[in-house]
Structures are given as C-alpha cells and as structure tokens.
C-alpha cells in the first residue's frame, strides 16, 4: 500500500512537471514566431484567437490530423521508434531539475552526470531517424547533427567541470545552494568564459541557429526529419524545443544561481520581495536564455560546417581546458574562494 502511494505521488509529480512543460513548448513556438517576426518588422501570427494565442493549438491539431507517410524502402520499425528515442531522454532529463527548494522529482547526487548522459542519448534518435528514412538528405543531416553534438558535448562537459570544481558537488540542488547568499556568489562571475562557451555549445548541442546545419533548409531540405510528417514530426519538434528549454534551465541553474533571488544580499529589497516564490526567479532567468535562443536565430546567419567544427575543437575545448586550469590554481591557493 505504501508502495502504491509512493508511486502515485511520483506520477503526480511527473505530471506536474511534464504537462506545463508541454504547454511551454507549445507557447515557445508561438513566442519564437512572434519574436522573430517582431525583429524582422513583421507582427507574426495574429489571426487564430486574440493576438494569435491559439495558434500553437491550431498547429497541434493540424499535425494530429495529418497523414504519417512511411517511405517505401525505409526500416519501418526504426523509422517509427526514432522520434520516441529522441523525445524520451529529453523528457527524462527533467527529472533532476530542481524547481524549488523542495520540488525535484529525483534528487540524485549525480544530477549533472545524469543530465549529460540523457542529452547524449538523444543523439541516437536523430541518427536512427536519418538512417531509417532511406534518404540521402536525412542521412547527411543526421551525420552532421551527430558529429556536431558529439564535438560540442566535450566543451559543454568541460564547462560543467568548472562548476563542479567550485561547488564540489554533482547534485543540482547543492550547486544552487552553494551559489546562494549574494549575486556575487553566482558562478558566472568566476567562470565567465566558461559560461559563454557553455551557452554557445548549448545552442550547437540543440542544433539551433546559427548552428543548424543539421537541418539547413537551403542545403539539405530539412535534415534528419525530411521524411517525417504528421505526429512523428511533431514529436521531433517537441524534443528539440524541450531540449532548448532544458539547456536554458540548466544555464540558469549552474551559472546564475537557480532559484536564488538576485537581491539576496541587499536586505531592504529582499524584505519587500520575499513574497515572490523562488521558482519565479528560476523561470525569469531561464526565460531570458530561451529568449536568447530566438534572438540569436533572428540575428546570425548559419555557420559553415567546417567553421562549426573549427570553433568547437580549436577554440572552445582549449579555452575551457585553460580556464579549468586557472580555476584549479585559484581553488588550490584559495585566492578568491
């Protein structure tokens, strides 16, 4: 009986995270179209519902009713299972994200390692999708995407190593707690170069513009999901946006103090803002990073493929390694910390 209640409680917690998450993905696509439209002096979707707010729902309904076309010489089993393989890890990764002091689904002590593992596993979905489609564009797209994700994962991991050295823990909650007290304790100050590298790598990791060679519309049509339609395509779409939201949350958590208020050290302001729930600060910080994703997409042209590889291997990995060494000296001789 006790087991049953624990299970029920866990399922309720999962629903509390995943249902708002799916809604957030839907409205993130709306925000993307609006923000990019505004930056291009257009006004974006405004016909479906007031201010076009029902547009994502209309899109979802459209995708639900569309036919799923399976290419004739494709591997049907892998073709259908690939979107699932890509969305499952990006959903599962949310288990360790702490939304508040007491709200986290799985408070495991290797949270960051788990997150890195989950984001790596989602590459499989993309590779399998590209291979099972029996289409050269899909294969090119998936190869590009997997090469890019693997090379940027290294620099992303190295950036996280810097955070781990400062916090001394892999648990996301204790990483946030070690940043509490003041805005000066947030890790983006000592680790500023690592933060920049982390965020650029995160954009590359999620295959977003300006690193979207994996689906480069002008070269290889749509990349790995060129043969997908209807709900199968929507699942890939969901996975991509979920990953974007995930890395935004992660950068807010590991570099910007998670749910900590920026005014914690200033007694007077903190007194008046104490009624704000701590999840608000986390959402505020991560929505800034989510906005940056759209901002970059509206601003920068696509990188050439060899430039992406050069940036990843020749700049980001050496710089992050160098900064880790500097940080370790600082820690060893207790200069700042």
């Amino acid at each position: 009986m006790e087991l049953f209640f624990t299970l029920l409680y866990t399922i309720i917690k999962i629903a509390c995270v995943s249902i708002p998450l799916l809604l957030a993905v839907a409205y993130y696509t709306y925000a993307e179209r609006k923000v990019i439209g505004y930056m291009q002096l257009r006004i974006g979707p405004n016909r479906v519902g007031p201010l076009g707010l029902l547009q994502p729902i209309a899109d979802a309904v459209k995708l639900l009713f569309k036919e799923i076309i399976i290419p004739s010489k494709s591997n049907k089993f892998l073709f259908v299972i690939a979107p699932v393989l890509s969305i499952a890890p990006s959903l599962a990764a949310w288990a360790v994200i702490p939304f508040g002091k007491n709200f986290v689904i799985a408070d495991i002590n290797v949270g960051i390692l788990y997150l890195l593992a989950m984001t790596s596993i989602s590459i499989y979905g993309i590779i399998i999708a590209g291979w099972a489609s029996n289409s050269k564009y899909a294969l090119f797209g998936s190869l590009r995407s997997s090469a890019q994700m693997i090379s940027y994962e290294i620099s992303m991991g190295l950036c996280i190593v810097g955070v781990l050295m400062l916090s001394g823990s892999m648990n996301l909650k204790s990483i946030i707690l070690s940043q509490s007290g003041s805005i000066l304790n947030w890790y983006f100050i000592p680790l500023f170069p690592l933060f920049i590298i982390y965020f650029i790598s995160a954009i590359a990791e999620t295959n977003r513009s300006p690193f979207d060679v994996a689906e480069g519309e002008s070269e290889i049509v749509a990349g790995f999901h060129v043969e997908y339609s209807g709900m199968l395509f929507a699942v890939f779409f969901l996975a991509e946006y979920m990953n974007m939201i995930l890395v935004s949350f992660l950068s807010a958590i590991i570099f910007f103090g998670g749910w900590n208020s920026p005014f914690e050290s200033i007694e007077i302001i903190n007194h008046y803002l104490s009624w704000i729930p701590c999840i608000f600060w986390l959402l505020l910080k991560s929505s800034f990073f989510m906005f940056s994703f759209l901002w970059f997409r509206a601003t920068f042209p696509r990188y050439r493929y060899d430039q992406i590889m050069r940036l990843g291997w020749k700049f980001f990995i050496p710089i992050s390694l160098f900064w880790i060494i500097i940080i370790s000296f600082f820690i060893k001789f207790k200069i700042f910390f």
């Binding site: 505004y38 002096l41 257009r42 901002w295």
Partner: peptide
C-alpha cells in the same frame, strides 16, 4: 561584431512594424 548584430535585432524588436 556579434553584439553589434544583436543590438540591431533588439532595436528592431521595439520598432514600428510595417505589416
């Protein structure tokens, strides 16, 4: 130069729309 570009898009975010 990256920040220059980002500045332009941010400026246009609040500009009058031509639609």
């Amino acid at each position: 130069d990256l920040f220059k570009g980002l500045n332009i898009t941010l400026y246009n975010l609040f500009n009058k729309k031509v639609t």
